[in-house]
Design a protein around this nucleic acid. Structure first.
Lengths: 337, 337
DNA sequence: AAAATAGATGTAATCGTTTACTTACTACCG
DNA sequence: CGGTAGTAAGTAAACGATTACATCTATTTT
């Protein structure tokens, strides 16, 4: 394997010059530049990254810590992050913290060991409470989750507003007894519940929110249980893609047709929400953009560590489908046997 | 930041002893061992990974190169790989090659630069043709895609057999004019087409296979086109989860009900295949197991580079659902206006 | 009891870069 | 014309571990 000194020798220059050419530093004559590049080419020289990282104290690596890459939201975020990162010659270390704050801080320690240039984090509630960027030896950008009072770079959806609009849409469509299933494990679920509650209150309706861990299984179980209680809800609302999936499965399983018996709506415009007849009304998040904004914020922060803290809030788009079709006013006939 | 010499000083031993204790090497007395561990604890010492990697020439990092992490198949594979890798204190570098052989070899070069311990690769056709593990400076395990004559560690599904069983099931259920939509960009699609063709031939039926790039959009377009031609197929079969999704969208869009007008079946037991009424018949792949087998194979290969080449073939499970329900024998009445 | 061996520990070389510092040269200015 | 910048290139000292090799002690062997 060719080393930098081999290149230097072949080009008839010092190793310092080779290093300078490769780093793109100014102040190196064109003739040396050319000779070095030719030698690099001829020897197929590739710098040893371990040595470079040791000496330069930079790793050009970032960490991405999410709860679970299998959650389609984070899948898409990770794809965006990786696209942009690789374009900037950065590596990405992906970590699944499984909504477990212990695992999360384990991974954050790992990031320190790796001496990463920065981290994109979708924090657990524990990490978010009293989160201070200065507690970490690297820049951190929060994604998807962030409290109102958190002072850190962050990219989030307008959760409260989106849930408010979704709920209002249901009410306007004639559904009044709307039950909101939300994840308690993250700040996002709480904020969406808040928007839901506000919309219900604005119409003089009683909020019924069911708190649960944000998994498909738990959502299915909770919905199943709720469908056995009376009075039956007018609509079920899921605060995330996973929860919405669980709700949908429960309705199918109980053979409750929507929107005839119970309407349905939720978050995340995943392919299946279009396929399930008659289509599910959702708030579509610009997920790829969220990921891209996060990595771009991080790149800027790495570049200018002292720059003012910034928060990017993206707007969710309401997509109306059959699952929340305007209710035919035949009150009293909507309950199932 | 504490260094190894600080630890050595505090423990009253040499740096070599500290290194040996941390590496878990034998031949170090219990008393020194204890003193070192206490000093490490007291100073919160964390070894510098760049230095370690430079000197030891090992990175404890592996590469995972797939076409697109957003493909649920690879999402699940990556989760399995990461789970096992982190358990073994290995980092994972994830790369999306987008089914582009140029990008793929770019990433393979990157793996060389990173001096990874090994790579798990879902190869493009170009990479697979004449693939030789010895062409790479690191061990490679193939996943999902592999030719009959490829001599390399690999983990794949019994593609030919699975497609054969799926097709036979359709034929047995009364569907004879079955059109197979398969991806040409990977070896997997071709193998599944082979199984399909064999099953059709075994029943004296004419195979109709539509080749296309394995994306949702292309599959939807191809199916849409086919649904405008006459005679209408008895069944559509998709050779992957993405293709099956495209087919399903096309059927919905054309308002063709399945299985009444046209039956439907395919690969990958994704959550939505259960939700779409009346459920879609699929071959379920043990995806997590595929990923786990791949990383385990890689770990063993790293451990014993000279070990014989191994191939793990996992069996797909046929899950029958409504989309391929036994046809009511009312021949001639199945075409739509 | 001397020699050989094994085992624990320490010393210092090494991994392959980047970069601070030195040197050489040129050009400009008073 | 001497002195002073300014620029381009080179020399060698980091970076912080691991590990080959040397050393020392204790034990076994002859």
């Amino acid at each position: 394997m060719a080393q930098i000194k081999d290149v230097a020798m072949r080009a008839g220059v010092s190793v310092a010059s080779v290093s300078r050419v490769l780093a793109g530093h100014a102040g190196v004559s064109e003739s040396i530049r050319q000779r070095v590049l030719m030698a690099v080419e001829a020897l197929d020289y590739r710098p040893d990254l371990a040595a470079r990282r040791l000496r330069s104290r930079r790793t050009d690596t970032i960490g991405l810590i999410v709860s679970d890459i299998r959650n389609p939201f984070f899948t898409e975020v990770s794809r965006a992050v990786e696209d942009v990162a690789y374009q900037h010659h950065l590596r990405v270390i992906l970590c699944n913290a499984d909504e477990d704050s212990e695992k999360e801080s384990l991974y954050l320690d790992l990031m320190r060991d790796e001496n990463v240039s920065g981290v994109i984090l979708s924090p657990t509630l524990a990490a978010l409470a009293g989160f201070r960027p200065s507690d970490y030896p690297f820049p951190v950008v929060l994604v998807d989750r962030c409290n109102r009072d958190t002072t850190a770079d962050a990219v989030v959806l307008d959760n409260v507003d989106a849930a408010y609009r979704l709920t209002t849409h249901l009410i306007d469509s004639g559904y009044r007894r709307n039950v909101f299933f939300y994840g308690t494990t993250s700040a996002t679920g709480r904020q969406r519940r808040e928007g839901y509650a506000a919309a219900m209150a604005a119409h003089g309706l009683e909020a019924q929110a069911e708190a649960l861990p944000a998994t498909v299984d738990r959502a299915r179980a909770a919905a199943r249980e709720r469908l056995h209680r009376r009075p039956l809800p007018d609509a079920l609302v899921g605060s995330s893609g996973l929860i919405l999936l669980g709700l949908t499965e429960a309705l199918r399983e109980a053979q409750v047709r929507f929107p005839d018996s119970v309407a349905l709506a939720g978050f995340d415009d995943l392919p299946w929400t279009r396929l399930v007849e008659p289509g599910i009304t959702v708030i579509a998040q610009p997920i790829y953009d969220i990921g891209r904004a996060a990595i771009e914020l991080l790149l800027q922060r790495i570049d200018k560590p002292e720059q003012a803290v910034r928060r990017v809030v993206l707007r969710g788009e309401l997509i109306e489908r059959g699952s929340s079709a305007k209710r035919v006013q035949a009150t009293g006939l909507t309950s199932i046997a």
